[in-house]
Design a protein around this nucleic acid. Structure first.
Lengths: 204, 204
DNA sequence: CTCCTTCGACCGACCGGTCGGTCGGCAGCC
DNA sequence: GGCTGCCGACCGACCGGTCGGTCGAAGGAG
């Protein structure tokens, strides 16, 4: 059971929401604390009442995304009947999450090395944990289908898949003909074609 | 025939090389003109002797990459026997180019919207021209193989492929077991599996 | 009910420092 | 002697962060 959020917690998350919006639009460095304060409707000193400094904003944003991503990935894997299905759902859910949080992921992907070096290590550790979940599904799938040839290492294959999926933050625009979920299914289909033992019938 | 580069041209390209190095390491906004000047071994005013302002550095970097990319893409397509071969070579050459110019592409991908709005339009036009070359190969390949089912639109498919390929700037590190060319071939193989009418025999 | 204390939320004014960019001048080569 | 390459010194703007202080609600004492 999560405790009811205090007024302070609400303010903090409002600040974070506004920060994501402005960081994604103007960049972390180019955004001043005054802009954020104005966006939230507070003064700059009040921002510092809630957060130690500018860096902490970025750390919180990045860390929260990691938490959410890890949680989603573990849930997805637990619910999937086979490693291949898990892999497919993992990719679909990443596409959906990315499409629905483009600003957030833009900040995470592009401001990654503005993170303070002392925390970067621990954050990287959690990012690796996420990637490892995906790699494990590939390995499990290959182990279950000894005839399959991946043509590369599982790590490279996962980097390729996650790259294709993450890149959607650069080109996806809402309001197109596809819902994020449809888009995710189509992309996952193309990405997993090379390791799917039962490709769709229409393949000639 | 290209004219012999003047001394000034050489200095300018030295400045650009150093700028790419520092921009990629510290970010465009976080990099001061003084740092660049120190890196080149000049004073700040001398930088302004060669370039109008900081923005122009970024524009030149970005524009040069576009030129080179378009040139490479056109050459590759012209030399390929079939659309599928062209597509494969296009992806391989992108991977190789990316691996060998990680800093450069990092700057282009991550500082894209620091570009001045008045030039952004024309630069975007050229970027679209590059993407269009790739899309055209997909269309031509599908037209030549009526039985093939792409499972999505050519545009989405190209975004997916280029995303996977571009993302390599985030994870590729030289000195690994694969050369960039090998890496490119492996990745292109996986990416094109879903539209390859003659997949490798070991597939089952 | 009232008075008084306490405290979180909040802000105007300010500071040290940095940044992009400029100015005026010097040196050396054609 | 003019042109190119070069620089020390400087400027206005702005930024992250702090300081000192206000205000109103909560809460206990009488």
């Amino acid at each position: 059971m999560t405790a009811a959020p205090s007024r302070a917690d609400e303010q903090r998350s409002r600040v974070l929401r506004v920060s994501v919006e402005i960081f994604s639009r103007r960049g972390y460095r180019a955004t001043s604390m005054n802009e954020i304060a104005a966006g939230v409707g507070l003064s700059k000193p009040t921002l510092y009442h809630y957060f130690r400094n500018k860096e902490e904003l970025l750390v919180r944003i990045y860390s929260d995304v990691l938490d959410e991503s890890l949680r989603m990935a573990r849930e997805t894997v637990a619910a999937a009947p086979t490693p291949l299905a898990a892999l497919r759902e993992l990719l679909v859910s990443r596409v959906v999450y990315t499409c629905e949080n483009r600003e957030l992921l833009k900040v995470c992907f592009e401001e990654e090395d503005e993170l303070p070096p002392d925390l970067a290590e621990e954050l990287l550790r959690r990012r690796r944990a996420f990637e490892r979940i995906v790699v494990d599904q590939v390995r499990a799938h290959l182990a279950a289908h000894p005839g399959l040839e991946l043509g590369t290492s599982p790590t490279v294959f996962v980097n390729l898949c996650l790259g294709a999926v993450n890149w959607t933050y650069k080109w996806y625009r809402p309001g197109g003909p596809r819902t994020p979920a449809e888009l995710g299914r189509e992309m996952a289909g193309a990405l997993l074609a090379s390791i799917d033992p039962a490709p769709p019938p229409a393949n000639r």
